[in-house]
Amino acid sequence: MNSVVCVKQVPDTESVIKIKPDGSGIITDDLKFVMNPYDEYGVEEALKLKEKFGGSATILCMGPSRVVETIRTGLAMGVDKAVQLDDPAFEGGDAFATAKALAEALKGLEYDVIFCGKQAVDDDLSQVGQILAELLGLPHVSLIQKLQVADDKKSAVVDRQVEGGIEVLKVLLPAVLTTQKGLNEPRYASLPGIMKAKKKPLDVKDLAALGLNADSVGCNGSKTMITKYTAPPERAAGKIIEGEGPQETAPKLVQLLREEAKVI
């Protein structure tokens, strides 16, 4: 049973995000980066499959040299090997361009299951997994919360979160599964795991190694383009209604709700 986990490095959810003065992006200099939390569920599930069925778990991650720390964190958790897609041409890609490069890299890997986090917590697009499945011609199930692979490893039964309940589906493997909170409890990297991580194979591939041309990936290969980032408007200060007791203040409140806030 071989799994590939697509992992994205994202700013730590506790980071304070600052936008560049020209609105072209965010300032990344002071940011602490971590593995996308939804991808951690994929890593944990891949490790569980490996423990149950044997086989291997591989991380596939796109990004510059800083993502190596995130990749090594996954290797320290127990993943066997990793592929990093690192080329300036990959930069600025939308979900489609990213999935395009990932799909190309996956053609050279063995897999029965491909895991993607249900979304990355930075851009919240929730698209890469689904586009990836389409490009590879594979079935996909999104937002999975439970996975049971059949003994013959040819299919799996998955629980999928839907509004107000759980949908249970059977899916043929190989498939792309996007992972959601509740699927498992990701393990900590153990100290021996951290020490071993450095010795595990990390294959770095650039554009040429994937056999793609620069027009099909990154900014150039994107179907959508981010034109500007703006910060949410600052919340205005609250208003304190002055007056003697509720008999005096309540009518004022009603008036404000009706005329200013226009909610009643």
């Binding site: 720390e69 090594r72 964190t73 320290a76 900590y188 100290l191 951290i194 991580a197 450095k198």
Partner: peptide, 14 residues
């Protein structure tokens, strides 16, 4: 080093 950073993150998380 990479290990020292991962150790810090892991122990902090723990």
């Amino acid at each position: 080093t990479e290990e020292q950073k991962i150790i810090r993150n892991t122990v902090r998380d723990f």
